[in-house]
Write a protein that binds this DNA or RNA. Structure first.
Lengths: 240, 240
DNA sequence: CCGCACACGTGAGTC
DNA sequence: TGACTCACGTGTGCG
């Protein structure tokens, strides 16, 4: 079966998509190149074939060139199928028909990815409950990079005490970090601070560790002074 | 500038993507078709042009066919640019270089969309279930602003009782808040209400606090009447 | 008829 | 050298 005519295109795509006929995976197994050279698609297309020149196992320059061209043609076809199969997967993933254009489909995909991205980040921000365990999280990602400056998202969850915030502010000041946004939530004597800070231009990614250590020592100070039974500290650093 | 050679391809894509040069939007404005017919791409390609047959405003069959072919060629080019610009947007959205293949890029997109989809649904489910702690959340952001009116997202989680909803409705009515959407979930005698409300035009951002306080008093009434042991109330206000 | 979207084969480029 | 990707122009079918 050749998917050349338009009637069988959708069927063909369906088969490819559902693995009922095989298509190369991306960037692997691509050497499986002449799997269908002996099947039913040996239609004569090139004039040279019509004029009797054998292209099978031909070492002559024309034969080699023709074989290369055939390989090329088939490889290109497989490449198209690969791309289209992914597009069809996306069609199935989004709320859209199987008949939407490639461009419109991709536009929807772009929009959806953006939506989901900020949705998850918003929801992550909502997840600011103070938990029962002490916890430090410092997170930095490329998404947080803003015109050259590095931006962190840091979270600190511990027992509340009156001079926690001043200490925190002092730490940020000493590290030359500028607070962009801060959230504070308290629950039953415990507190969770989530703050987004921007570093100076000359800061490197190692500032994440400085901040991390400073927060850790702050938390240890709190625990030792209060003789807290809460010994375990969840300590996370995420660099995405 | 024509993007024919491979050196300028990336630059061209960059310009298209950032809107520095225009490309048709999907499925609209596609009638803008011959915008570059007088630019530098009037290279002679067809033998008929070389043999002196004018293709400009030619009503002869050859002229018409040639003009159609030219239109077709340019339209196809625009289609390609449209698709590629979206692919480049996706490249910028995902953690990948600008040099990843189309197929691999699309594979990553498929994977990412799947991930984000189930992530958000999982979190959304978690947000709907009533939790064990009493909780009030009032959230307002610029995203919730709708043609001038302020829109809140408020969440209330507490012990269920029969006259909770009437009380809630009364509060919203007294504050002149119009309910746009509401979700109610009950589980083991506990209830969670999430509702989106819109304020009147004359409301300010302080209405958030009114609502917050009203809900708090509502919750305290419930607790005092039921002699609930659940004293701790998570009380959050986020203004993004 | 024309506009539109697609698959196709091919030349050119990169590694 | 070949294996691979890409943009291109073209043929074709649909509305």
């Amino acid at each position: 079966m050749q998917p050349g005519n338009h009637q069988s295109q959708e069927l063909y795509r369906f088969l490819v998509q559902n693995g009922l006929i095989s298509v190369n995976n991306d960037h692997q197994l691509s050497a499986m190149q002449s799997f269908c050279s002996s099947s039913s698609n040996n239609y004569s297309y090139y004039p040279l074939e019509l004029s009797g020149v054998s292209t099978e196992h031909d070492a002559s320059p024309q034969g080699r060139a023709l074989a290369a061209l055939k390989n090329h043609k088939e490889a290109e076809k497989r490449r198209r199928e690969r791309i289209n199969s992914h597009l069809d997967k996306l069609r199935g993933l989004l709320p859209c028909n199987s008949k939407t254009d490639k461009a419109s489909l991709l536009a929807k995909v772009v929009q959806r990815v953006k939506e989901l991205k900020q949705q998850t980040s918003e929801i992550a921000e909502l997840e600011t409950f103070p938990s029962e365990t002490d916890e430090i999280t410092v997170l930095s990602s490329n998404d947080y990079t803003n015109d050259g400056r590095i931006v962190f998202k840091a979270s600190l969850c511990c027992e509340d005490r009156s001079d926690l915030l001043p200490d925190l502010i002092e730490i940020l000041k000493s590290l030359h970090l500028k607070t962009i946004k801060a959230e504070i939530a308290t629950l039953g004597g415990r507190i969770r601070n989530v703050f987004i800070v921007a570093a100076d231009k000359d800061h490197t990614i190692e500032s994440v560790n400085f901040l991390q250590n400073a927060l850790k020592s702050l938390l240890e100070r709190s625990n030792s002074s209060e003789r807290s039974k809460r010994r375990r500290v969840l300590d996370r650093t995420l660099v995405l």
